[in-house]
Structure formats: structure tokens, C-alpha cells
């Protein structure tokens, strides 16, 4: 009987998952439990936790920007991979197309760079 080559990946996944879940559950059981209200509060360097809700607070817009940039370039990578794998098949035509594609992304990249989208401060 031959298994699909993907099955072992799932197998390893399952083993790892079993181990991790077991550990997490075991920690619940093995560890002691001594109630202390302060212990259950969020850690804030020993001062009283601020009332500001974490999810509702704002965090820097740069994180979003990074995420968006990531998406853009990840998409570029999606297209680069198949092209790279069959590079020899595609030849000059593929090369020219890809140059155009990369140049286009580069234009956006240059814009983001110049407008300070890549500066983190």
C-alpha cells in the first residue's frame, strides 16, 4: 500500500500537535495552584495595570503598513516561484515579462521608500 507523499507531513503535524497539547494540558495538572489576585493581573512592571483596554488601544500605524507591504511582496513572490521553477522553459519571453513585473513592483517600492513608508520611528 502506498500512501500519498503528503500523509507523512500530516503525521508529523499530528505528533507535534499531540505533544504540544499534552504539554499544555499537563502544565495545568502538574503545577501547583496558589491563588493570588495580583498574579493574575496583567504584568506592567509592578505598577497598577492601566485601565485602557488592550484591544481598543491604538498601536502604531506602521504595523498595518508593514502588513500591507508584506502582502504586496508576498504576492510578488507567489508569481516569482512558478516562474523561477520553470525558468528554463519560459526563456526570454518569461524574462521580459518578469522584468516588467518586477519593475512595476519596484516603482511602488520606490514610492513607498520616498514617502517614508519604510522608516520606522
Amino acid at each position: 500500500m502506498s500512501l500519498s507523499p503528503y500523509v507523512p507531513i500530516i503525521g508529523l503535524f499530528a505528533v507535534a500537535a499531540a505533544f504540544a497539547l499534552f504539554s499544555v494540558a499537563a502544565a495545568r495538572l502538574a503545577g501547583p495552584r496558589r491563588y493570588n489576585r495580583a498574579k493574575l493581573d496583567a504584568y506592567e512592571c509592578g505598577i497598577e495595570p492601566s485601565p485602557e483596554p488592550v484591544g481598543g488601544g491604538r498601536f502604531p500605524i506602521k504595523f498595518y503598513l508593514t502588513a500591507m507591504l508584506f502582502i504586496v511582496f508576498d504576492i510578488e513572490i507567489i508569481f516569482l516561484y512558478p516562474w523561477a521553477v520553470s525558468f528554463d522553459l519560459l526563456g526570454g519571453f518569461g524574462f521580459v515579462e518578469m522584468v516588467l513585473f518586477i519593475v512595476t513592483v519596484f516603482i511602488a517600492y520606490a514610492y513607498v521608500w520616498r514617502r517614508g513608508g519604510l522608516d520606522w520611528d
Partner: peptide, 19 residues
């Protein structure tokens, strides 16, 4: 493949607007 790209572009624009 193309749809993925479009979806990604949509994500970027949409996030920007919603944000």
C-alpha cells in the same frame, strides 16, 4: 492564481480604508 493576487490587493486597499 490571479484571484489570489486580486484578493490580496483588495485586502490592502480595504484595510487602508477601514483603518
Amino acid at each position: 492564481f490571479f484571484v489570489m493576487v486580486v484578493a490580496a490587493a483588495e485586502v490592502v486597499v480595504g484595510l487602508a480604508i477601514i483603518m
